[in-house]
């Protein structure tokens, strides 16, 4: 390697674009990838917004009626497009499955971090990872073959077994690993001094968990539940297979019902692209998109309040 003593320091050391070609190319390459991510996100938002608003702009549907009417009769001579039953159905399965999976997931996280870390690591950790791996259609399939007949035979209120309750249970199992994983991370990132301080004051383990650890980890635990809810809200096929897909508001947990995602799944293939019926499905898609935004905002709000 020859010394470039023939070149002056200026020639050697002043920056010029010709000296560093690989760097520029690399920078352009990675920036391009970042740009693709931005373009993908913006075009999803933009195209789904345009397409989702068409039923109101082109077909002249009343947005308020779409959101707040419970009459869904697209095929009658005087078609009505009230999506309220599906919006409520989506919210119901989301909240109910969070009510089941939340306590179970957080309880499991507490078991893994506070009661027995060794069983947690050796048994529960792999169990949770396996549960994450099961595809959602398989959850739906098991719900359909096990849960639906079980509910039909157990509860006299359910004629078919397809019900809000069935959908809720399937979703609860599905989001349980999500909730548990994040809750476990939250609990295990609590400083040990919190536990020791409380135990040293003579508090029992349960008092420590209830009075010290859970309050300290609360924003993260809430994040765990919200992320689980976001997953439940967006799930389509597993719910569609077990919920019954009727267009009426459910009167009880045992009534069949429908959600935004299940109606989209069912009807997208059976409606003509560009028709009113089809456009209302895109409006429902837009609602799904907006609610995803809201979930992100909630998660951001929670992580800003995180103390740990």
């Amino acid at each position: 390697m020859e010394k470039q003593t023939t070149l002056s320091a200026k020639q050697r050391l002043i920056r010029s674009s010709s000296k560093n070609p690989g760097e520029t190319r690399g920078k352009i390459l990675v920036s391009l990838c970042a740009l693709i991510i931005i373009i993908a996100t913006l075009s999803i938002t933009l195209f789904l917004a345009i397409k989702g608003l068409q039923s109101f702009i082109v077909n002249g549907l009343n947005p308020l009626e779409f959101l707040f009417s419970s009459e869904w009769n697209p095929t009658s001579s005087d078609p009505q497009y009230g999506a309220l039953p599906f919006i409520l159905g989506s919210l119901a399965v989301t909240l109910l499955s969070a009510l089941i999976a939340g306590p179970l997931g957080i309880g499991c996280a507490i078991f893994m971090t506070e009661i027995s870390t060794s069983i947690g690591k050796k048994v529960l950790q792999p169990v949770i990872e396996l549960l994450v791996g099961i595809p959602s259609v398989v959850y739906g399939f098991i719900g359909l073959t096990v849960l639906v007949p079980f509910i039909r035979n157990t509860f006299s209120g359910s004629a078919t077994g397809f019900s809000l309750l069935t959908g809720t249970i399937v979703l609860s199992v599905m989001i349980l690993p999500t909730v548990t994983t994040i809750a476990t991370d939250a609990m295990s990132s609590l400083p040990n001094s919190l536990r020791e301080g409380s135990l040293a004051l003579g508090a029992t383990r349960w008092q420590t968990i209830k009075k010290v650890l859970i309050p300290a980890a609360l924003p993260s635990l809430m994040t765990a539940i919200v992320l689980g809810m976001a997953r439940a809200f967006g799930e389509a096929l597993a719910v569609q297979m077990v919920i019954g897909n009727v267009r009426d508001l459910p009167g009880s947990l045992l009534d069949p019902s429908a959600t935004l995602t299940t109606i989209i799944t069912l009807n997208m293939g059976y409606t003509t692209y560009g028709s009113v019926d089809n456009n209302t499905l895109w409006s429902m898609g837009l609602i799904l998109l907006i609610i995803s935004f809201i979930f992100i905002l909630i998660i951001r709000y929670l992580s800003a309040r995180r103390k740990i």
């Binding site: 320091a9 200026k10 050697r12 050391l13 002043i14 920056r15 010029s16 000296k19 560093n20």
Partner: peptide, 17 residues
């Protein structure tokens, strides 16, 4: 100053430096 150049200058090629 290194060989008459201020090496903290913005226009220095840090890689060559």
């Amino acid at each position: 100053i290194y060989e008459d150049l201020n090496i903290l200058d913005k226009n220095i090629d840090v890689i060559a430096l």
